[in-house]
Design a protein around this nucleic acid. Sequence first.
DNA 1: TTTGTATAATCGCTTAAACGAATATAAGTA
DNA 2: TACTTATATTCGTTTAAGCGATTATACAAA
Lengths: 112, 112
Amino acid sequence: MEKLVDALKALSDETRLRILNLLYEKELCVCDIMEALQISQAKASRHLIYLKNADLLRDRKHAQWVYYSLAIDERIKFIDSLVYDNLRNLELYKNDLQNLKDWLKRKTMNCE
Amino acid sequence: MEKLVDALKALSDETRLRILNLLYEKELCVCDIMEALQISQAKASRHLIYLKNADLLRDRKHAQWVYYSLAIDERIKFIDSLVYDNLRNLELYKNDLQNLKDWLKRKTMNCE
DNA sequence: TTTGTATAATCGCTTAAACGAATATAAGTA
DNA sequence: TACTTATATTCGTTTAAGCGATTATACAAA
């Protein structure tokens, strides 16, 4: 992250906060985000790239999937507080985590 | 603050972060901010109002002056971490504090 | 090679927000 | 009442970002 301000701009959008909240659980691919948040593919992709450009995420390609995970270093540990002390007290973000859990279970069952 | 996102939007601008950094020291009027940051009156006023609308500041009128101070409650304690762990390690914000100190000293001396 | 799936990029449009410059308001002082 | 000072607001312009819809790319599997 070049600038602290860039990280804060990346955090000042609800969709991106919701994505970040999910990624605090585990690495996910774009389609996991789409399903858990019930948003379009273009929207998920755009916001993930925005977060990556702010150096808050890294990505890893495997076959046709792109997996995103947190890339939050020491310099911006206030984000931990934001997520654990604020986001996770709000219904919207709690629901998102439950939706993610449900989706990942369904996804696994389809492969068995 | 209605929405966490509104607070984050308010924090995602360098001028507003610089203002917040100063107000972590003490209550200040608009002209103190102008002097310490060397910005125009209109710019100082606009950004202070933006922060106030996000419920991060309160104001208090006394004669022709308007004093602004922090209004950050429990819900957004991550801002403490942002200021103390991040901003205050950066030269720009350290310089601003020194400029504020110098300005307040000059201001006091003029009244003696 | 064709088809399907996952992801990214582009287009056109709309809105928020930043800026300097100028003007308005409101209170204090001469 | 005039004048000054402190602060807020408005105007016109510019830029960043958000969106849905669509198209492009890249890999996999048939």
